[in-house]
Nucleic acid binder design. Sequence first.
DNA 1: GTAATTGTTCTAGC
DNA 2: CGCTAGAACAATTA
Length: 258
Amino acid sequence: MAELPDLTVFAQILNRRFQGRQLERLEITVAKKLNVSEAALKSALEGRELSNVRREGKTLQLHFSGAQVLGLHLMLRGELASLEHDEKPKYQIMAFHFKGGEGFAVTDRQKQATPTLHPKQAKAPDALAMEESYFKSLLAKKRTVIKTLLMDQQAMRGIGNSYADEILYDAGLSPFAIAHAIPPQKAGELFHSIHTVLERAITDIAGANGDELKGELRDFLSVHVPHLDETANGEVIRTDKIGGRRTYFTDTQKRYGS
DNA sequence: GTAATTGTTCTAGC
DNA sequence: CGCTAGAACAATTA
């Protein structure tokens, strides 16, 4: 599924290809996740210009003229696809047809992708926008394992199961470390790893995608790789479950607390 | 036929 | 009551 770096690259590509274009027709194929009626969504967006696309946490926000905003959460299996020669993509949820003929579709074979007209602003900061002081005080007061905290969208937004593993590996910190037992210096290193891992992934994926709206690219992950026995550094990759989610880690990652 | 997947939401328990 | 851990749910494929 698409995570923060993929979504960031999708936003860049949509801006490059469709910014300033007029939405001629909004095609809604699966309406069950809409927060407004199909007719209300169409009338809110059709005829508007796409002014900007931004990533917000695990969602994309499509900003249209007239202060219309559509939030889009791809959930587990949602993808974006270019519309080529009038062919409807498989598993289409909705499609944006711009004046002049081009456009893109949202697809999801599990039909869980969720479009939200005028999403309300979330309280928690975005993972790439939060202050280090906020991050450190958050760790100091939480007793949960660190991986759960990184993925907690009420605490910080944008990190999912696979990049949580990647970030913790980069920081040399066990996913089972207890948040408030992590010393301040290590918390600082973890904060730094959030940025380096996510920003490197954005660069890698942007380079590989070009202007194509491909699905997520997993070639760049270091530890969160099923069926990979060891890392590029030769460390054995272990797996376990945290909160029912598959977790990948190595013995070189330091575990603090219990 | 069943397990696996993972983000979100609900609920039980401390 | 606040916090945390875990279950339930979604839909489809291997």
